[in-house]
Each structure stands twice: as C-alpha cells, then as structure tokens.
C-alpha cells in the first residue's frame, strides 16, 4: 500500500467541478511534483487530501486511513499550504510550541526544526516582523515538527530567495532519501525538474499525465536516445533489425531512437561492430512536456 493513495477524487463547488476523478499514488522515498495551470485544482486536491475540503466523491488516504482518522496526524503527515498563516503577535518559537503541545511532540523538537530551517536566531521575534521567506521557513518547520512519514508542500518555494530555494531542494531530496513520501506543487517548472522523481500533471481538474520524470519528459514513448556513429546508416539498419524505429537527423546529426535507452542502443551498436561517436538521452524539457499535456495552458 502506497503511503498516499488518491482514488476517484472529485470535488464540486456549486456548478464548478474543481477536481474530476483524480487517481494517483505517492510512493515512499520519492519526491512527486504536482503541476497544473491556474485553477487546475491543485490546491483543492491537496486540501481534500488533508481533510480540509470534503470530497464530493472518491477517497484520499494515508496508509488506508483518511487524514481525519489518523492518530496524532502530525507524526504521519506534515503539510505546508500556499496560504500558510500565523498569528502575527505570536513568536515563531511559540507558534511551534503550540503545535508541539497539540501533537504531543517533545519540546526539544521545536529547537531541532528551528535549526533545520535556519530560523533559530529569529525564533523569539513576533511573526509579524518576519519576511515572506521566513514565514515560509516557519511553515516548513511546522510541517517537520512531528518528523512525518509524508510531506505535502503547496508552492513551498514562494517567497524564498535563491539560497532558500536551493536549501528547499536539498531538504526535499533529503526527506525522500530518508524514506519519506514527498508531494510538492510548484509553478517553477525548472525548480521541479531539479527536485522531483515523479510528476503528476493536472488541468481542468483532470489528470493529464502521471509517471516518473523521465516518462513524462519522454512523452508517450518514453525517453528517446540520440546517437552518432562512424556509420549511421549501418547503425540504423541494426536498430531497425532489432525492432526499433529510427529517425535520421539532418546531415551529421545522428539518429533518434525513441523508446530505447542509451544503454540498449550501445549494446546493439557493439554487437554490430559499430563505433559510437556520441550517445545520450534526448528529452523534452519539463516545460515542453507540461504544455503538451495541458494543451498549452499557462502554468500557475
């Protein structure tokens, strides 16, 4: 059972079907990017997952249980929502102390997560004096307080400066490397491309694409391989004999072999006794993949 399972999730607000029959899993030890244009239903989906919005139909569960059914939910799921807000008159440390008491976490965790997000020096300042980036770090500290198995982050890089974004990227990877399942929505495609293992693309409330980053970047046939050799015509024949489609690029550009890994192309070339000059994977950029999947809608 995946740590997060979404099955047939739909949410209607009046006449608007915000989320329509969404189904996907989030796996442990992986970072999953959740992409979609404005109004695609990303935030509604995340809020339904967290029990803040009641689904019209379908389920969203953590280890088979709805968020509301979790015992001490902050030990299972940490969440940062896009509009994370704090009482302006409370200090960052006291905000975390309140959450620690609610979740029955040891008080020492407050100092640990403050250190993790780099807010120790500002911990005793009132939140109203925080920059947007500091508030975002405080929200992340709140999510990490219970050392949860699942992290859900809605636009977590909002307000972060470049070092903060780099820190966030490292934090996401580190959480995944510790076996956490991480779901992160973002409008920064380049940022997502550097951070995620899997991608879920939605538009108009519906799933448009789902798979590993390589699969999504590779389109329907998966990633393609671009190869140049001492004799491209011979290599093309060898590849076709092995059952692969081959597209020849303009003079000297080599060959494109869709749906085949560079390793397999290398083996075929070796078996045919052909020396290779260049060999590598050819992918669409995430932006190209996104536009292809969403029909060219601008991204949120």
């Amino acid at each position: 059972m995946a740590p997060v399972e979404i099955r047939g999730l739909s949410k209607r607000f009046g006449n608007v079907l915000a989320v329509n029959d969404l189904s996907f899993d989030i796996d442990a030890g992986r970072v999953t990017g959740f992409l979609g244009p404005n109004g695609a239903g990303k935030s509604t989906s995340l809020r339904a997952l967290l029990g803040l919005v009641r689904p019209t139909s379908g389920t969203a569960t953590f280890g088979g249980r709805r968020y509301e059914e979790l015992q001490r939910p902050s030990t299972k799921v940490g969440a940062v929502l896009e509009d994370a807000s704090f009482h302006p008159g409370r200090t960052g440390r006291n905000h975390l102390r309140v959450l620690a008491v609610t979740g029955r976490h040891p008080p020492e965790r407050v100092d640990v997560v403050l250190d993790t997000v780099g807010l120790t020096a500002a911990a005793d300042r009132r939140v109203k004096g925080y920059s947007m980036g500091m508030r975002q770090r405080l929200a992340i500290a709140s999510a990490l307080l219970g050392d949860p198995e699942v992290l859900i982050l809605d636009e977590p890089t909002n307000g972060l400066d470049p070092p903060g974004i780099a820190w966030m990227r490292g934090m996401l990877r580190e959480q995944a490397s510790r076996g956490r399942a991480v779901l992160v929505s973002s409008h920064l495609l380049a940022e997502v491309a550097q951070s995620v293992d899997d991608v879920v693309v939605i538009s108009g409330g519906q799933m448009r694409g789902h798979g590993t980053l390589e699969q999504v970047l590779g389109g329907d046939e998966g990633p393609a391989t671009q190869v140049r050799s001492q004799d491209d015509q011979r290599l093309a024949r060898a590849l076709q004999a092995a059952g692969h489609d081959v597209t020849a690029l303009a003079a000297g550009g080599g060959l494109i072999v869709p749906g085949v890994s560079p390793q397999d192309v290398g083996v075929i070339a070796h078996d045919a006794g052909i020396y290779l000059v260049a060999l590598g994977q050819q992918s669409r950029s995430l932006e190209q993949a996104f536009f292809a999947l969403t029909g060219g809608e601008s991204i949120a």
């Binding site: 967290l50 029990g51 803040l52 968020y67 509301e68 979790l70 939910p73 902050s74 969440a79 929502l81 509009d83 994370a84 807000s85 704090f86 959450l99 609610t102 979740g103 709140s142």
Partner: peptide, 8 residues
Amino acid sequence: TSTVLAAP
C-alpha cells in the same frame, strides 16, 4: 487551517 490540521 493549521489549527484543524493539527487537530482534525
């Protein structure tokens, strides 16, 4: 939101 997330 954060209050309900902590105490669903």
